[in-house]
Design a binder for these strands. Structure first.
Lengths: 222, 222
DNA sequence: CAAGCTATCAACTGATCTATTGAATAACAA
DNA sequence: TTGTTATTCAATAGATCAGTTGATAGCTTG
């Protein structure tokens, strides 16, 4: 009986190793970045505003927790999410926290600014089939290269105004980015509307799309 | 830009409040117990081998993280999982850790003892429809009362040998319990086989079954 | 209201976690 | 080889967390 208690404790102890990985906001941001595309330590540190040493340490913690894989590429090291379980877990945590914690909702609104109208996945699929809309991926080009929704064209946010002419004026534009909490898509829609276009954002982003088995193309990062 | 960084930090900070809840083995065990049925602080403390004060503190942490609800019942307080998101999250963490962390797999084998043959959900549904098997819920009676697979009969593990006569000898017996890491079902199958019965365990338990929308009945705990 | 039980609070100790700093290592190129 | 860059290591100080203990508050019952 005491034996059984010890074995059970060991089991929960082992599971908590992965649980601890989700206890730091810095690690969550790293996971969120990796959900888009594999990246090197340096890129991750820059994108998350951390020192290289600190990012490296957190990445090692994520690695020990089995959530990321590590691959040497010459002088640099590229980290990537470890399988769909890791992605699913991060998305589930984000979703649950948005539903159950008012503070998350508030912080999200604060970060995203005024809400813009969204399109559901099903509606998008249907209208894409009809050739009714233009789908635009407004993430950085490398993330598009690492994987994107089939039929989307890549126009990174900072090139949006410059490349407006590429978008047929008689079609509605649907913009998507990293996920429901990514400011890029919101921003893109606001700017498209300011330019007189009819635009909405996809309700969530590339990782959610990929995970729900929608048709998608996979490339290696450039 | 600095403004945006601050807002983004606040967002990840808020999400990490929920993430921190998964960082302690004690809290994970409490979540696992609550996945079966709502319980009072005292029951949870006893079942997890913690002092009341410590269990109470961890439950408050889970409450602050939005993972459990709290309800006063006279002199006691009953905690319950907060919605399916909390359950889904715990199951996803357990699943991911079992897949990605060798140590979890090892600890699980150690706790469960020799592996016993399992039946998948689909096969069980099919054979239940044919009336081909007897489905037995070997969890404590209160957990059965709080919810169980439709068509199952409740025979708590410690009454198993005493009530063997209730099981038709010409049918295969399928036992299920709290989940894939619960020793009850394993133990039950081993004991049934020792008694000369043809028995297997369901590959996972009641919470997984309920979450995957299989037919189920819901009662309040006794 | 007094007794008895359940749950929570408050304070404290030891342990663990985080971010920073500066040094060390690994791969590569000249 | 030497220099260069990316990553990791080691040491540290401050912050946060975990579990214990003893006291307190809330509800129910006599």
């Amino acid at each position: 009986m005491a034996e059984s208690r010890r074995a059970k404790d060991a089991l929960f102890e082992a599971i908590s190793v992965m649980g601890k990985a989700f206890a730091s906001p810095v690690r969550l941001e790293l996971l969120d970045l990796l959900a888009q595309a594999p990246r090197t330590v340096d890129e991750l540190a820059r994108a998350s505003g951390q020192t290289n040493a600190n990012a490296s340490q957190h990445l090692q913690a994520l690695h020990a927790a089995g959530l990321v894989t590590r691959e040497r590429e010459g002088t640099r090291v590229r980290y990537a999410l470890a399988g769909d379980e890791a992605l699913a877990l991060w998305l589930a945590l984000r979703e649950a926290s948005a539903v159950r914690l008012a503070e998350v909702e508030r912080a999200a609104r604060d970060y995203l600014g005024e809400d813009v109208e969204a399109v559901g996945r099903d509606e998008l699929v249907e209208r894409l089939a009809r050739g009714d809309v233009v789908l635009v991926d407004v993430r950085p080009a490398e993330e598009f290269a690492a994987g994107h929704i089939e039929g989307a064209r890549s126009i990174p946010l900072e090139e949006l105004e410059r490349r407006l002419a590429e978008l047929p004026p008689d079609h509605e534009v649907v913009a998507y980015s990293r996920g429901p909490f990514c400011a890029y898509a919101h921003d893109a829609v606001r700017r498209l509307r300011a330019a007189g276009r009819n635009a909405r954002r996809l309700e969530d982003g590339w990782p959610e799309w990929r995970l729900s088995h929608e048709p998608a193309r996979h490339h290696r990062a450039a």
